[in-house]
C-alpha cells in the first residue's frame, strides 16, 4: 500500500519537474532567428506527428478510423470549430462501426 503511494509520488514528481523547470526558469526571450523559427513550427509538427499514423488506430478498427479521418479532414478544411470537428469525427466513426457490417453483409 505505502509502496504504491511512494511509486505514485515518484511518478508525479518526475513528471512535474520535467514540465516545471523549462517553463519556470527560462524567462528570457530567445533571440536567435533560427531557434525562433524552430519553436514557431514545433506545435504544428508535434500535432501532425501525433496524429499520423495514430489516427488510423484510434478506434481499434481501420474502416471506422478512415471514416472519422475523412470527415475530420473535410470539416477542418472548411475551418469549423474544434469541438464540431472532434465530435463529427467520433460520430462518423461510430456510424461506420454500426452501419458497415450491416451494409457489407
Amino acid at each position: 500500500m505505502n509502496r504504491i503511494l511512494l511509486a505514485i509520488g515518484v511518478m508525479a514528481l518526475t513528471t512535474y519537474i520535467i514540465r516545471m523547470i523549462p517553463f519556470t526558469f527560462v524567462r528570457k526571450k530567445i533571440k536567435s532567428r533560427f531557434i525562433q523559427s524552430i519553436l514557431y513550427y514545433i506545435p504544428y509538427a508535434v500535432l501532425s506527428a501525433m496524429t499520423i499514423p495514430s489516427i488510423f488506430y484510434a478506434t481499434q478498427d481501420l474502416p471506422s478510423a478512415i471514416a472519422g479521418t475523412v470527415v475530420a479532414v473535410v470539416l477542418a478544411y472548411f475551418d469549423l470549430p474544434l469541438i464540431v470537428v472532434a465530435l463529427s469525427a467520433s460520430a462518423a466513426a461510430y456510424l461506420a462501426m454500426v452501419l458497415l457490417p450491416i451494409i457489407l453483409k
Partner: peptide, 13 residues
Amino acid sequence: NALGIALYGMFLA
C-alpha cells in the same frame, strides 16, 4: 472506441 478519434479530429482542426 469512437470517442478515441475525437482528439485526433481536433488536432486536424
